[in-house]
Write a protein that binds this DNA or RNA. Structure first.
Lengths: 158, 158
DNA sequence: CGACTTGAGTTCACGCGTGAAGTGAACTAG
DNA sequence: CTAGTTCACTTCACGCGTGAACTCAAGTCG
């Protein structure tokens, strides 16, 4: 193991407990998104697509600023610009300058876009239950929320 | 919230505790890899690059079959083939048919490749400590390992 | 007022990952 | 023996995400 095979170096290599925590986390991070995305593909959605559509659908009048969307989805503006461009091309969303302040851009769901997220939501929730919630007892669920908070990762509402 | 705003549908929408667990997990999954990868970029490595190099460096004589590497890194053969191709082009690794069974391909680190992972390891471990281990008390670390196991996600050694 | 600054957002070039298609080695069946 | 099957692996085409460069609207300063 590279991490702990050089005792001659001034590096605090990981012990077994640390390694178990670390590898647990990274494995979840690497594998879980793919699992949750797979059923969404039937709707032509990536996981991030779904989360973006979901966040907009929850906003007042199903519209919000791109910067607010970036905050809610933990995504970069660059990424979202590309995503919303795809949505526009599919007729799911539209973008326009915020009338209150032209520096901002508002992203709004079309009726078609709303229908997509409505259709996909039950599938998404079922996947979340199956892959995340059902296998975990309450103390583990609480731990997940607590850990995310401790790691200074802001959970977004989805 | 899309997830629970359609009480008229036969779907078990998420309650607050479930949502906190779910959003905690997905936020970690979305944001943590990027954090850990950033310092590795100074070495020209993605996080997956590092984990691949690390896994090979730990194998006997610093070589192992591609399929074994895929298992250890939780990566697909397709992905690894691309990654190893890059490594070969950089002189970090070589691939050859397994003399014991020509159906298999062996991936081996070159001295240059080994030096890359040796150079990057302290940085990687420090990032893991800073972003994952240091903010978490022992019970949360134990929870991570337990959760990964419960979610049927096999932690790989890194 | 004009020049400059700041921040939101878009575009661009390119790296990376995926699934499908293809290749080849070993094994199996007739 | 040959034909077919299976599995490991590579290649390919393309979607997606990133960081840098760019644009633009609003605010600030002299």
């Amino acid at each position: 193991m590279t991490d702990d095979s050089r005792a001659d170096e001034p590096v605090a290599w990981l012990d077994a407990e640390e390694k178990a925590a670390w590898t647990g986390l990274i494995s979840i991070a690497l594998l879980m998104p793919g699992r949750l995305e797979a059923p969404l593909r039937d709707f032509g959605l990536t996981l991030f697509d779904y989360m973006s559509l979901s966040a907009i659908s929850e906003a007042p009048d199903r519209r919000l600023r791109m910067s607010e969307l970036a905050y809610l989805t933990n995504g970069s503006l660059s990424r979202l610009s590309n995503v919303l461009k795809r949505f526009e091309q599919k007729g799911w969303a539209e973008r326009y300058p915020d009338p209150a302040d032209g520096r901002y851009t508002v992203a709004a769901l079309t009726d078609a876009g709303y229908e997509v997220v409505v259709a996909a939501a039950p599938t998404h929730v079922r996947a979340v239950r199956e892959h995340v919630l059902d296998p975990l007892p309450p103390e583990d669920r609480a731990a997940l929320a607590r850990i995310a908070e401790r790691l200074r990762i802001r959970p977004a509402d989805h």
